[in-house]
Design a protein around this nucleic acid. Structure first.
Lengths: 289, 289
DNA sequence: CGGTCCCTTGAGAGTATTCAACCCTGGTGG
DNA sequence: CCACCAGGGTTGAATACTCTCAAGGGACCG
């Protein structure tokens, strides 16, 4: 576990300044960076018109760095800050009554953290860095105030929260209806999409989280995740080597419901080499839709 | 199915008026009612200070009635409206690639509908009335505009969305970690809490949805739901008679993880009457925490 | 009063979990 | 430099759970 490393929790302090000249001088000073509102909007993929008042907004937002294993915030901690991921990989977890954790998401670049704290004024989940991270601090009250003078920002705030809501809905749908294979396949495809969006390879990438964390996220045990990855590997849909994943048949993965059982495979290919073939047949290699 | 009844979809038209005198006269006219902003806030359980500008806001929101089986909105339909449930029972569902529906929630009095449509400008789910309903129409753009002049309202909007987000998180946690018995028990308790909040009995109530819908909501089949209700009944934790549920041991239900198997029960009580006893023993009647 | 839903219950099959053994890798300290 | 250890990962066997398929009962409605 991260117990030894997880002691440091970020505490507020000064996070925003209104004097751009002083701030500009402070860029990069002692490892800190500052972003203006336009940069924040770009990161959140909010369309900002060229002549928008947002482009001229001078307020700056502070960056903060976290090392792998550090907690960004904790359940029950007073809420006052949202975070945008500028770089790095994290997880958010819910701790239920008896200590066991449920992973809720794996935020990465351009994701927003902390939204669940707004209504109770305390964070409802916990965020932990899986790798070294660079986050931008968004003091919520200031942001809400800004959104009053920048209508686009107001709409963007609602949009980002609504998007997160829709994401959780599809998560619920997945947990409610899909088998282990379907869940793992979709998980890999969602990672692939995210990496593509960030400009990385969508075909080969590294998992930043453990099998245990994936299992928690998908409602499976770590053994089942491991077995399922092996099965997808045997079906030639992916290549697996520890944390490295290569996607070989994304169209099948995207709609996979379940793999045929060993019995069904044996029946469909009665006498053939027991090893996987170069080009996997569409049927009965996988059952989609 | 509701296919015969589900043809009518509400279409926008006029929903808000700014002349209270005319509106007042229109109350109850042709079955329609109007609510002012204060009433809407009360319904959403938003604290409004007595001297707040909200109390004096004259804008009125229209009510609309739906009959059991009617759809309020559909997936993909252009979004422009949020709805608050004033009375009645509904379900929201997601239809996945191949037609099978996943129930996402069972909204009832004071719940907000349609939030998932904000970011794509189209509804991401579908809402269906399970009983006759009275809903209040909240045109989103007008509401957002209002929230610029009433800071409390702005905060409430964020709060309501954040609350919904937290609800979905705990839903994900439940689907990811709990057994069928745990899921059904929590489902019943959440209904109980909701009924208590609405001023109805929290001990005895009617299920407004079918076993199939409950199963879809909880990620179970209808047979499993039925069997689980029977098992909770046999364990004397609840009483079941078709749609009528009586909660008999809420403290156990609230933290239930799983019921002992028939085998374990037989071992713990080797020779005793096979029927349930009046006061169920705490152990081995249920395993909590 | 026949049909359609909805609900219950049983039997059997299929999936995921549990428990356990073992391997691999990276880091640490002798 | 190497031995050792802990955490992460893989795999097997047995078990437990949930689903599927099937049959039958009851309520509501035209």
């Amino acid at each position: 576990m991260y117990s030894a490393k997880m002691s440091e929790i970020h505490s507020g302090s000064q996070t925003m300044i209104a004097q751009p000249s002083a701030a500009e001088a402070g860029r990069q000073r002692q490892g800190k960076l500052w972003s203006n509102l336009k940069e924040v909007c770009d990161l959140l993929r909010i369309q900002v018109a060229l002549n928008s008042s947002i482009a001229n907004e001078e307020i700056l937002f502070q960056h903060v760095q976290f090392k792998a294993g550090q907690r960004i915030y904790t359940i029950g901690q007073p809420f006052d800050m949202l975070y945008i991921v500028n770089s790095g990989f994290l997880k958010t977890v819910l701790i239920d009554e008896l200590g066991n954790e449920q992973v809720l998401s794996f935020p990465m670049k351009s994701d927003l953290l902390g939204v669940d704290g707004i209504h109770t004024k305390c964070y409802a989940s916990e965020a932990v860095a899986l790798s070294d991270c660079d986050l931008i601090l968004l003091p919520f009250r200031k942001l809400a105030a800004l959104s009053r003078s920048h209508v686009e920002l107001e709409h963007a705030m609602y949009g980002v929260m609504s998007r997160e809501l829709a994401r959780e809905q599809s998560m619920i749908c997945m947990l409610g209806t899909l088998s282990a294979e379907g869940r793992v396949a979709r998980f890999l495809m969602s990672l692939s999409d995210k990496f593509a969006q960030m400009g990385y390879s969508s075909k080969i990438f590294n998992l930043r989280m453990t099998r245990h964390e994936i299992g928690s996220y998908l409602g499976l045990t770590l053994e089942t995740v491991s077995r399922t990855l092996s099965a997808l590997n045997d079906a030639a849909l992916i290549g697996v080597d520890q944390k490295t994943i290569e996607l070989k048949d994304t169209s099948t993965l995207r709609t996979l419901r379940r793999l045929p059982t060993a019995k069904a495979r044996a029946k469909a290919a009665p006498v053939s080499k027991p090893k996987v073939k170069k080009s996997a047949p569409k049927y009965p290699a996988a059952i989609a839709v």
